[in-house]
Design a protein around this nucleic acid. Structure first.
Length: 459
RNA sequence: GCCGGGGUGCCCGAGCGGACCAAGGGGACGGGCUGGAGACCCGUUGCCCCUCUGGGGCGCGCGGGUUCGAAUCCCGCCCCCGGCGCCA
């Protein structure tokens, strides 16, 4: 038992309550968990005592000398079993109750995390030279200088076209109407240059991060219930996860899920950590909690491609590696030339798994907002406890839990929206970021320098 | 999908209804020996609970069942190997 949260629950429940309060959740869950755990431990002791008595008698039956003695002992054992039956039912019930409540406890909150609801999330740094339409200037300053972030921005007088209109009307390279008819809203058809762009973005992230030593991985795109339930919390399950009819299979919402499950019920030695993985997969999301937000375009969709960073680490290294993940993401977006700010996400908006989370938000010139492109979470031992992934120290062979961390590298459709708005020229042409060009040059039919509006095309 | 064989501790592997409650080996870890290393010797090496220099319970793919007693018998599921079929 070295799970941080269980230790805290038993030794200092008030402290754990503070963490739960920071998340704006009802702290009475801690009292419930404490009581159920205590009750379970007492019941376990009681049951074990009776099992012990039963075991002693049961073992002596094999050595009984006479038939009478044998029958007497068998009857005694039977009586104890009858007594056990009810207690074991109670114990099982308590066990299930305990598991449910322990698994519903969120991770503790890191000291650096700003406390409050999403409005308390704190932009902490910014990079790049955003194009700001004059009509958005106040909004822009409100999202940067208000937090003490200064950016060299360029005011433009023409208003860029939103990514949804760009896609569908200006470029004519997407069809969400037909997709809506045949699959539903938040689906899309993408064509030609945008498909090339999608793949080029993935290749770019794969190229960069494999060079940094991340192990390239294609994971399963579906997981069993018992595994998925351990990787994520119930809320995420309800809001994001699709199920396959008549099968015990759930579509992943990100490669994080199968990458976290890679060492399900396994042991990792401290000298083989950190393990850095790079998952490439489609992501399937219900977006059930999204309401009517971002209904147009491909910013928030049921399906997209993503390159995902994932790290298994020792507890002492996880903070450092969390910075590594967000720094990798910054590097990717700097080279893409997309201006961003980094946000330290507030306690109330963390999600149950994370102890701390950084988002990278790119400035969207048409929307006049910074929008999330990357999310980097340190889950410490929250996932590892649920997935039973142990850490073994060579020195002394002590057993603990590993820490897990995850971060987006590139999410295809979102990054495409960012390019459509940031690389847009007044005439609707979209210049292709230089860093992507080498992944497009090799294909004759791929766009090499820019994507042109449909009415400008000569062909 | 069908037929046959199989899943034992970190790994290999014995056990196939009860007799110190998984033999034996390897690896790892701790200690001894050494100037240091190797070899060698001793010990530890599944999970959980407690009144924790000790005591106890549960563990043999997962979940049920039979029995006073199951790694061992029965049922369902999962996975692996071989053969047949099907398929990109």
């Amino acid at each position: 038992m070295t799970w941080t949260i269980l230790e805290l629950l038993r030794n200092n429940p008030d402290k754990l309550k503070e963490h739960v309060k920071k998340r704006l959740m009802d702290p009475s869950i801690v009292d419930k968990a404490y009581n159920v755990d205590l009750k379970w431990r007492k019941m376990l002791t009681k049951v074990n005592e009776i099992r012990h008595r039963h075991n002693i008698i049961s073992r002596s039956i094999g050595k009984a000398k006479s038939k009478e003695e044998r029958m007497k002992l068998v009857n005694e054992a039977r009586n104890l079993l009858k007594e056990l039956e009810k207690l074991e039912t109670d114990l099982k019930r308590l066990e299930a109750e305990r598991e449910t409540i322990l698994y519903s406890l969120p991770n503790i909150v890191d000291d650096d995390v700003p406390v409050g609801d999403e409005s308390a999330s704190l932009p902490i740094e910014a990079w790049g030279e955003p194009k700001v339409w004059s009509g958005h200037l106040n909004a822009f300053l409100d999202q940067t200088e208000r937090y003490g972030l200064s950016m060299n921005y360029k005011v433009i007088e023409w208003k860029p076209v939103g990514h949804a209109d760009m896609l569908e009307n200006v470029l004519g390279l997407g069809d969400t109407i037909k997709a809506g008819e045949v699959a539903g809203s938040r689906f899309y058809y993408l064509f030609e240059d945008l498909v090339w762009l999608d793949f080029a973005l993935l290749l770019y992230a794969i190229d960069k991060l494999t060079s940094k030593g991340y192990r390239l991985t294609i994971p399963p795109y579906m997981l069993r219930y018992k595994v998925m339930g351990r990787v994520i919390d119930i809320e995420t399950f309800k809001d994001a996860i699709y199920k396959i009819e008549d099968e015990d299979l759930y579509l992943i919402a990100t490669a994080e899920h199968p990458l976290a499950a890679l060492y399900y019920n396994e042991e990792l030695y401290d000298d083989e950590l950190p393990l850095k993985l790079l998952g490439v997969s489609p992501c399937f999301r219900k977006e059930a909690g999204a309401g009517n937000r971002d209904l147009k375009g491909i910013f928030r969709v049921h399906q997209f491609h993503k390159v995902e960073q994932f790290i298994y680490s020792t507890p002492e290294d996880s903070k450092k590696l969390h910075y590594e993940l967000i720094n990798n993401a910054k590097e990717l977006f700097q080279e893409l030339g997309l201006p961003y700010r980094i946000v330290n996400i507030a306690s109330g908006d963390l999600g149950a798994c994370a102890t701390k989370k950084y988002d990278l938000e790119v400035w969207m010139p048409a929307q006049g907002m910074f929008r999330e492109m990357v999310s980097a979470s340190n889950c410490t031992d929250w996932q590892a406890y649920r997935l039973n992934i142990r850490l073994i120290r060579r020195k002394g062979m002590a057993r603990e839990y590993v820490h897990t961390l995850n971060s987006t590298a590139i999410a295809s459709t979102r990054t495409i929206t960012a390019i459509l708005e940031n690389y847009q020229e007044p005439d609707g042409t979209v210049v292709i970021p230089k860093v992507l060009r080498k992944y497009l040059e090799v294909f004759d039919k791929a766009p090499h320098e820019a994507i042109y509006p449909k009415r400008k095309k000569k062909e």
